[in-house]
Design a protein around this nucleic acid. Sequence first.
DNA 1: GAGTGGTCTAGACCACCCC
DNA 2: GGGTGGTCTAGACCACTCT
Lengths: 239, 239
Amino acid sequence: MNKNIYMHIYNDYSAQIQSGSLSAGQKLPSENELAEAYGTSRETVRKALHMLSENGYIHKIKGKGSFVLDTQRMSFPVSGLVTFKEVSERLGRSVRTIVYENECVPSTAEIARCLQLKDLGPVWKVVRAREIEGEKIILDKDYFLTTYVPSLSIEAATNSIYEYLEQKLHLPISYAKKEISVEEVTPEDKQLLDLHDYQHIVVVRNYVYLVDTTLFQYTESRHRLDKFQFVDFARRVQN
Amino acid sequence: MNKNIYMHIYNDYSAQIQSGSLSAGQKLPSENELAEAYGTSRETVRKALHMLSENGYIHKIKGKGSFVLDTQRMSFPVSGLVTFKEVSERLGRSVRTIVYENECVPSTAEIARCLQLKDLGPVWKVVRAREIEGEKIILDKDYFLTTYVPSLSIEAATNSIYEYLEQKLHLPISYAKKEISVEEVTPEDKQLLDLHDYQHIVVVRNYVYLVDTTLFQYTESRHRLDKFQFVDFARRVQN
DNA sequence: GAGTGGTCTAGACCACCCC
DNA sequence: GGGTGGTCTAGACCACTCT
């Protein structure tokens, strides 16, 4: 199951902290104790603890130990590379996805620029609305290079596209760049979402890269103002 | 100057990549070559390369090498724990800070909640507007525990509070939690900023912690809609 | 097969914290 | 002084890429 020892340790503790069986302020065993407990070396334990620290689960204090952080973070979408499906499941909300469009289209000049295409070749386009507790709040517009995603079934689009890409197509997704801004609503937004009278909308542009650094997906996630929230955890770089 | 070898390597390469003397796609020396060049071990080199990778500077491919990423990221404030001053200097924009308030006040119920205070003790409050190219666009409201920040000079508030906290008070700032949302403008926003007719404003709530995990600062950064941008870089967790 | 990055080891010394 | 985390070493074996 867990090929790597450090991943095993990381998974053990992140699960315990998320589930609440380890609560804020509690002290973890020392690195030497963990190394012995897992039958590994201290550096391997340290790698796991470093990841827990990077992801906001614990905090390490020299001379004292590692401590669980107060972490009811991640209130809503878009932190890290977490998918909408993962987040809504975690929240246990009543969520529905409506697929408006799921087809191969010639790319417009704007999409070609976003995907860094030389010519206006075809792209696979998916347009979906996310309905949360009866209101259509988020509009997701996805564009994929047809080289990697020649087509997508309605089932894949309705469930999780990422699940399909990673588990079926085995695309090695590596990293993403996200840009958040606020823009004026478009007629399309008004038509496809329950926007009330808001004149602006939060736009999250997502550029997704494979491990060979090719850009293969561009996504525009358009959120109704009042329902948008983004949570971020950051560590100050030490000197 | 650089106490740690890995920091030395990290600083060397992050500087070269930021300055553009290493450009996107270029290959770094192999880990073994770097270890020899810096007269250190491979694990130490790997620690530096891991940090470069985490911060979006490079990308590592097993069997091939480490490559510089296309990185004109960080378009505007609020990514990582970077201060306003650091960012505006990097952008080379004409920026001015106006201090409206800089004093010790009793905390309101809301501020006490944000700073997790038991009682309504005093806090040091700073209210500043950020003027960019002639327009007051950002309103920063900072609240500090007086235990750590008994007072602040106008100079510190006008320049960089962080610089003062870290270099003069030697406060060990460790990590922060950031929440971004969009809210309705308040009369205070209208009065202190050049808001045009926008009815909403982007609010970035920032909770800053010291290394001993005490929360010592709460900041509300209120950005005019059209000028707000947030850029984030994220890696997909590998399995 | 040679070169690369990914994981892991079993030590070492240091700086810091607390008693 | 004993325990803690922070840094570093000099090896090892593996999986992967390229040719």
